[in-house]
Computed example of a mutant assay.
Amino acid sequence: MAEPIKRKKLLTKETGKKKLSQPKAQPSPQQTQLDKQRAEYEKKQLAEKKAKAAKIKFSLLALLVVIYIIIPKPQVLVYEKLNMVSESIYWPGFTKEQAIMLDTNQQVIIDEQLNIIYFCYRGENKQNCQKYTLIERKGMFAAAKLYFSNH
């Protein structure tokens, strides 16, 4: 008959203790100096990345502020004629574009000194225009509120 196979333990208690009790190799002074230099270099790289990100964020913020200042903002104009009061969203012209009212296709001319709004068809002079008295001007947020309440 066949002889039974004897099982052997590969890791005995004694071998495990030997491995744990062996001292770790001390890194050489050159290796520790290299590790310190590598850590400093990584810190510098991280600081440079943060500085670049901060510059980009600041540039974008400055660009948004400049755009906000330059672009004309919509306004709500309250005007009347024959005791009939009306509100409209007015968008001032930008460079070569003419000012528009969102609820009319007529040309809008505002006389700031006399507080008068003229609605004219294109190509007509001021004498043939409809004349309204400007009562009040409201800001950009009022224009947004009026726009979304009507649409």
Rank of each mutant, 00 (worst) to 15 (best):
K50T: 02
D35A: 08
L77M: 15
M84A: 08
C129E: 00
V76M: 02
S86R: 10
L82H: 09
T95E: 10
L64I: 08
Y121S: 15
A54H: 07
L77I: 15
L46A: 10
R122M: 11
E87W: 02
F94C: 04
L134Y: 00
L114P: 04
R38V: 03
E112C: 06
Y90P: 01
I67V: 15
N105W: 08
G139P: 01
E42C: 04
K131A: 04
A142D: 04
V66E: 05
A54L: 12
Q31I: 05
P72E: 05
T95P: 00
P92K: 04
I71M: 14
K126P: 06
Q31A: 13
L77Q: 02
K126W: 05
Q106Y: 04
V66T: 13
P74L: 02
Q31Y: 05
D111Q: 08
S86Y: 06
I109Q: 07
P72A: 07
I56L: 14
K49W: 06
I109S: 06
E136M: 10
I71E: 05
A53I: 11
V76A: 01
A53C: 07
L63S: 14
I56N: 09
I71Q: 08
F119C: 07
L63R: 10
E42M: 08
I71K: 10
I109T: 10
A54Y: 03
Q30F: 06
N105F: 09
L114E: 11
L61A: 09
I100T: 15
Q45P: 00
L60T: 09
A25P: 10
G139S: 05
G93R: 00
E112V: 13
Q127I: 10
V66M: 12
Q113V: 11
Q33C: 03
I89H: 02
L60C: 09
Y68V: 07
Y68T: 11
I56A: 11
F119E: 13
F119K: 13
M84R: 11
Q26C: 05
P74Y: 01
N83W: 07
T133Q: 13
Q31S: 08
S59W: 12
L82C: 05
L46S: 04
R122K: 13
L60A: 08
K52D: 09
Q106T: 07
P74C: 01
L63C: 14
Y68G: 14
E87V: 01
I89T: 04
A51H: 05
S86D: 04
I100A: 05
V76P: 00
Q31W: 03
